[in-house]
Amino acid sequence: MTLPVYLVDDDDAVREALSLLMRTVGLSVRGFAASEAFLGALDRLEPGCLILDIRMPAISGLKLQERLRARGVDWPTVVISGHGDIEVSRSP
């Protein structure tokens, strides 16, 4: 059984392209345009893998991950960015 993938990215084109790519290899993908939308749906979702954009308005991918951990959600997570640098890749 393959875990569903939840992609949280505010860029429509990136979200759609990555979703299409993952679906071509048989993955079940559900996209969210904002962290708030994902958090609002969380209680109805089965456990899965997260792909989080690091830079989003309101709640960044890293802040979303912190909020999820505080709620006891420790799903496998990949953080992506189109604007990464060395400082952003370091853990606190």
Results as ranks from 00 to 15, higher is better:
41 A>M: 08
30 R>N: 06
29 V>E: 11
35 S>C: 01
87 E>D: 11
39 L>I: 06
2 T>F: 00
26 G>L: 11
64 L>I: 06
6 Y>A: 01
46 E>K: 05
16 E>F: 06
30 R>H: 10
82 G>K: 03
48 G>I: 14
76 P>D: 08
52 L>Q: 10
44 R>C: 01
64 L>Q: 04
73 V>H: 01
37 A>V: 04
90 R>D: 15
25 V>I: 05
40 G>V: 00
3 L>S: 13
11 D>V: 10
72 G>M: 02
29 V>G: 05
89 S>R: 15
26 G>T: 12
60 S>Y: 11
10 D>F: 12
80 I>M: 15
48 G>R: 08
47 P>A: 15
39 L>A: 02
46 E>Q: 01
65 Q>F: 10
57 P>K: 02
3 L>H: 13
75 W>N: 04
69 R>E: 01
89 S>V: 08
81 S>H: 11
43 D>W: 00
47 P>R: 03
8 V>Q: 15
82 G>S: 10
25 V>K: 05
90 R>M: 15
80 I>P: 14
58 A>V: 12
28 S>P: 14
49 C>W: 14
14 V>W: 07
17 A>I: 13
82 G>N: 07
61 G>R: 13
44 R>A: 11
18 L>F: 04
10 D>P: 14
70 A>I: 01
43 D>H: 03
78 V>F: 13
75 W>P: 05
1 M>A: 07
26 G>K: 13
74 D>M: 04
22 M>S: 06
66 E>Q: 11
84 G>V: 12
9 D>T: 15
76 P>C: 07
4 P>Q: 02
33 A>V: 13
3 L>A: 10
2 T>L: 00
59 I>V: 06
34 A>I: 08
47 P>Q: 02
51 I>G: 07
64 L>E: 03
36 E>F: 02
11 D>L: 04
63 K>I: 01
5 V>E: 03
57 P>Q: 05
43 D>R: 01
29 V>F: 08
50 L>M: 13
67 R>W: 02
48 G>S: 06
76 P>K: 07
82 G>R: 00
3 L>T: 05
71 R>N: 00
85 D>S: 09
74 D>H: 02
52 L>C: 12
54 I>K: 08
88 V>R: 13
53 D>R: 04
24 T>G: 03
44 R>K: 05
61 G>H: 14
73 V>P: 02
17 A>T: 08
3 L>Q: 12
46 E>G: 03
23 R>Q: 12
34 A>F: 01
90 R>W: 14
68 L>C: 02
85 D>T: 15
32 F>D: 06
61 G>A: 09
86 I>T: 13
86 I>D: 10
50 L>A: 10
3 L>R: 13
88 V>F: 06
64 L>W: 08
53 D>F: 03
29 V>L: 09
62 L>Q: 09
84 G>C: 04
75 W>H: 11
48 G>L: 13
28 S>E: 14
51 I>P: 13
23 R>W: 10
20 L>W: 09
90 R>T: 14
31 G>K: 05
85 D>P: 02
66 E>Y: 11
54 I>W: 03
26 G>S: 12
12 D>W: 04
6 Y>P: 09
85 D>C: 10
25 V>N: 04
32 F>M: 14
69 R>P: 04
80 I>T: 09
47 P>V: 11
59 I>N: 09
18 L>K: 07
32 F>P: 06
83 H>A: 08
39 L>F: 00
31 G>A: 00
6 Y>L: 10
